[in-house]
Computed example of a mutant assay.
Amino acid sequence: MIQPSHHRPIVLVVEDEPLLRMAAVGLVEDAGFDALEACDATEAVRILESRTDIRIVFTDIDMPRGIDGMKLAALIRDRWPPIHIIVTSGHVADRNVRLPVDASFFGKPYDERQVTKELHRMAAVAQREVPGL
């Protein structure tokens, strides 16, 4: 397992569209976080299984290969309960999204200031839950 090597919180960005993933990574980094990238939920699970320092996952709902962002969010909540989750979609309205406990939803196009604020809120909670990260 890869252990934490620095003090900036790490956010795993899961997005199958390369340009949207690049934009989300830029948002995360501009907000003061380190970003890891996954092109689908399968890759995201592999990354989560190999690291202990990820505190937030930022995932799109619509992804290929069977596991969408909602299934990924549920899997994360079951296997890695301390990880905070932000779910996004340009095709699903927030009233139709059934999120796991302690997850947030943002419709696309999302307000970057609101997402940044939520990332910081989640990071502060994670810091209290797991001091030293």
Results as ranks from 00 to 15, higher is better:
M1P: 13
H6G: 15
H7G: 14
R8L: 03
P9G: 00
I10W: 12
L12R: 09
L12P: 10
V14C: 00
E15K: 13
E17K: 02
P18K: 10
L19Y: 04
L20H: 08
M22D: 11
A24S: 12
L27N: 05
E29L: 05
E29K: 10
D30C: 05
A31R: 02
G32E: 10
F33H: 04
E43C: 06
I47V: 15
E49Y: 01
T52K: 10
T52I: 10
I54S: 06
I56D: 03
V57I: 12
F58G: 00
T59C: 12
D60S: 03
I67V: 14
I67K: 10
G69A: 10
M70R: 00
L72C: 10
P81V: 00
P81D: 09
I83D: 00
I86E: 01
I86H: 01
T88D: 05
H91M: 08
A93K: 12
V97D: 06
R98Y: 07
P100S: 12
V101W: 00
G107M: 14
Y110M: 06
Y110A: 01
E112M: 08
E112I: 15
R113L: 06
K117T: 03
E118I: 15
E118N: 06
M122R: 03
A123R: 03
Q127L: 12
Q127W: 09
R128E: 10
G132L: 11
